[in-house]
Write a protein that binds this DNA or RNA. Structure first.
Lengths: 207, 207
DNA sequence: CCGGTTCCGATGCGAGCGCATCGGAAAGTG
DNA sequence: CACTTTCCGATGCGCTCGCATCGGAACCGG
């Protein structure tokens, strides 16, 4: 068995280069040559890792999706002490990729989002991430309402306290976060405004 | 003065071709050659109408922006009889570009949105449209709350009925609509789900 | 030490891109 | 009708793209 540079490691390295280029100059800037240069590997190496450019982009989508979902999961496990409600808040803020240090991810994500509207193969990768994030949010919201309302207690005087539909709220929250992110990226909102709007939405949610 | 084919007319024709191509195959498919073919003009004509490709795209952004905002304004003027609240609902639905016949506009819009995150010149055009739509929505929401709560009546028993911040709600609604549209386009939501979520959001807004 | 296999980086190729250029058609003027 | 001016469509150019190819380096068993 001949020498073997860890292929998976290299793939991730290339995917990072793809994302960096997309962040800086858009999707069409992610050419094989520039990606190879950015990843500091030869162009042939890129071609060996991925049979075609489309396959490379497909992997990059999954790659950035993993980064986001894993960060979300980590955030969840790291803060079990907080109230579920505030955890939802923090998570939503993180999903919205509003913080400056996630600006690059946000731009990349948006680029893939637009591309996915035309190339179904990319859409599949994005949907996977969205489904996972949504499930995470829904579970968290369900926990939060459970806790704030008490477990399945039918109050006699206030019989139908409009128990939240967790799935519905998770979907709405996710869409709102995406929309706000996009508006921030094109400069139609400041980060602060977006954060405020997201916060207000959550406040009303718990009310 | 020699012959003169209406330039403005031609520009709009070309912009339509640009949008059609973007809808079908994405932004990078809008090459000068293909645009010219689709618009059924010569390539030279395109170059004379727009000095550079970037200028063409810039015009196309403004073009589609005008289409959306004008449709919104028309919707407003055509239905002054309805309650402002339901007008907001209809308008939001239309802004979300959820209906099948606006799918093409939605895809084009999303493509420009992603491009604008990288090319500031395009972002300016989008921001103009967003600002207008947002103002429209805000005014409408203000009217609706005015009507439902009565004009500036401070009720003695229910002193602070949480009068809506129209600007805030307009911003949230716009972002939500955009996010939902994107999710529908990549197949993460069905049109029906998105409509339902939008509807639910509005219901809670008026409550 | 060596032949064979496996992997690698560089180069070549055809296609398509945006843009510049050019010859000729159309319209106005004496 | 001849000349000038204005506009138009077609072609050419330089470049970059994704992908295929190839000679050589690295590593193995014997």
């Amino acid at each position: 068995m001949p020498k073997q540079v860890d292929h998976e490691e290299r793939r991730r390295r290339i995917a990072d280069a793809v994302c960096a280029l997309i962040d800086e100059q858009g999707l069409e800037a992610a050419t094989l040559r520039d990606v190879a240069a950015r990843a500091e590997v030869s162009m042939g190496a890129v071609q060996r890792c991925f049979r075609t450019k489309e396959e490379m982009l497909h992997f990059a989508v999954a790659h950035i999706g993993r980064q986001v979902t894993e960060r979300a999961r980590a955030r969840l496990l790291a803060a079990p002490a907080q109230s579920p409600a505030s955890t939802v808040g923090h998570l939503a803020h993180e999903l919205a990729l509003l913080q400056t240090r996630y600006r690059a991810q946000a731009r990349t994500w948006l680029a893939f989002l637009a591309a996915a509207a035309v190339h179904p193969a990319l859409a599949a990768g994005l949907r996977t991430s969205y489904a996972e994030l949504e499930a995470l949010l829904a579970r968290l919201i369900a926990d939060a309402t459970e806790q704030s309302l008490g477990p399945a207690a039918d109050h006699p005087l206030w019989p139908a306290p409009e128990r939240l539909d967790a799935a519905r709220e998770a979907r709405t929250l996710l869409a709102l976060a995406d929309g706000l992110t996009a508006h921030v990226l094109i400069g139609h909102r400041t980060t602060e405004e977006a954060e405020q709007l997201l916060h207000d939405h959550l406040v009303r949610l718990w009310a």
